[in-house]
Amino acid sequence: MPPSISLPATLITPPLQGACDVVVVNYNAGEFLRACVESAFAAGASTVIVVDNNSRDCSLATVEQCHKVDDSLIIVRNASNLGFAAACNIGTRYSAAPHILFLNPDTVLSSDALGGLIDTLNSSPSIGMVGGFLCNPDGSEQPGGRRVFPTPQRALLRAFGLSRLTRFFPAAFADFLLHKDPVPAGPVEVDAISGACMLVKREAMDMVGLWDEGYFLHCEDLDWCMRFGHSGWKIMFVPCARITHEVGVCSRNRPYFVEWHKHLGMLRFYRKFFRHRYPILLWGGVVLAVWFRFSLVVARHAVRQLRRSAEARKHA
């Protein structure tokens, strides 16, 4: 079913060469969405395109109260939750800018973040994608903003806590997340960045292709980074571009749904890019390990819910 759109489906006039459109995929982000949109305009976005995956909260209403829906703000209302990758692709089709920033609705850009990202993206014709310094509200760096590719081995080591041995055996137990490494003084090349804040060149995107809609939620950003790298485009981490990120605003009320799709995404990512490296028995072990991890995560969520329910009854 096609999305319901708040504007006539007309093409946007191509903006100036340095212009940047921002695509925000929303799902029940509440007041966070308005703060995200306001920060994007304050940072210099040409157009903000909000693609809503059938939210049931007040998030769109809060944005519409503060910003007129016109050529600079486009709201696309999907009739159902199509997933993150599909919604990103829908947003892309409403943009004609040479740069597109994909931004989570629970993020806030610092005033100079977008300029720093664009400067780095345009500093070399070989750079196709850049990401900024994702930080918690207290200013500490979040995991995922800069990383190497999580091979099945690296992912399993982290999942079962063995990556803590990295400081003793760095070659054998290396983590794929780099947030514990010293923050670089300037932009550095990395394997992958986070889909929470991902700025791309249109020419690179045209070469690589759109997001893989086979992912519903999680790992689609790793997939895109992998494909950018395979196509010869560099990916950069820009530490001066700070983005505050409230993790999990859109997903915290559906932990089992989110974890199910997260683990499906893991398997799709591994199957696409690593399956050919493994004999069938070892690949079977990878699949079993992913679902074993899923069972542990589900059990952990269930225990937490039981504890919260017990506490609520105690104080009732």
Results as ranks from 00 to 15, higher is better:
187 P>R: 01
113 A>K: 00
96 A>T: 15
109 L>P: 00
193 I>Q: 00
168 F>K: 06
202 R>I: 04
198 M>L: 15
112 D>Q: 00
150 P>E: 11
195 G>T: 11
192 A>D: 13
182 P>L: 07
182 P>G: 08
115 G>R: 02
184 P>H: 12
147 R>D: 08
91 G>S: 06
190 V>C: 02
84 F>V: 13
112 D>C: 09
81 N>C: 14
156 L>A: 13
172 A>L: 09
185 A>I: 07
90 I>Y: 02
172 A>V: 15
152 P>N: 06
95 S>L: 05
113 A>M: 02
160 F>P: 04
122 N>E: 15
126 S>R: 13
124 S>Y: 11
117 L>G: 03
156 L>Q: 10
173 F>D: 03
133 F>A: 00
169 F>M: 05
124 S>L: 10
127 I>C: 00
189 E>P: 09
94 Y>Q: 08
168 F>M: 08
172 A>W: 11
201 K>H: 07
115 G>Q: 05
181 D>C: 06
144 G>I: 09
181 D>L: 14
194 S>D: 07
103 L>H: 08
103 L>N: 00
100 I>W: 01
203 E>Y: 10
100 I>N: 00
159 A>Y: 04
179 H>L: 07
133 F>M: 07
196 A>S: 13
116 G>Q: 11
192 A>E: 14
192 A>F: 10
153 Q>N: 06
134 L>N: 08
101 L>N: 01
153 Q>E: 11
182 P>Q: 04
176 F>K: 02
114 L>A: 08
197 C>Y: 04
103 L>I: 12
98 P>S: 12
203 E>G: 05
110 S>A: 13
133 F>D: 01
96 A>K: 05
160 F>R: 13
101 L>P: 00
115 G>H: 05
152 P>W: 05
133 F>P: 00
94 Y>L: 13
120 T>F: 01
91 G>C: 07
187 P>M: 03
91 G>E: 02
106 D>P: 05
89 N>S: 13
130 V>P: 00
110 S>E: 15
173 F>Q: 07
130 V>E: 01
95 S>D: 03
203 E>F: 05
131 G>W: 00
151 T>K: 01
169 F>T: 03
116 G>C: 12
88 C>Y: 04
150 P>A: 03
111 S>V: 14
197 C>R: 03
106 D>C: 12
114 L>S: 05
126 S>Y: 10
157 L>K: 03
175 D>V: 07
174 A>D: 03
154 R>G: 05
158 R>H: 09
